[in-house]
């Protein structure tokens, strides 16, 4: 399964959910879906914006773990 470590990166960059949502042009509810791991899919454009704002790589956000 794919684990989203968005909360870890947000804590490192000391950025709140609302602030990040505003910067990447998403609603806080939508970003929360990603943060809590409920998202079914992520668009590349969204991933691109998040990585740009958090100054990180996709691998910092997404991790694969065995079930």
């Amino acid at each position: 399964m794919i684990v989203v470590n968005l909360d870890v990166m947000m804590a490192r960059r000391k950025m709140s959910l609302t602030e990040l949502a505003e910067r990447v042009d998403l609603t806080p509810a939508n970003l929360s879906i990603l943060k809590t791991g409920k998202a079914r899919a992520v668009r590349f454009s969204t991933l691109d914006r998040i990585c740009r704002e958090l100054d990180c790589q996709p691998a910092d956000l997404l991790e694969y773990r065995e079930n």
Partner: peptide, 8 residues
């Protein structure tokens, strides 16, 4: 529909 709604 879920797939579409839960696509960020």
């Amino acid at each position: 529909q879920d797939e579409q709604e839960l696509t960020v």
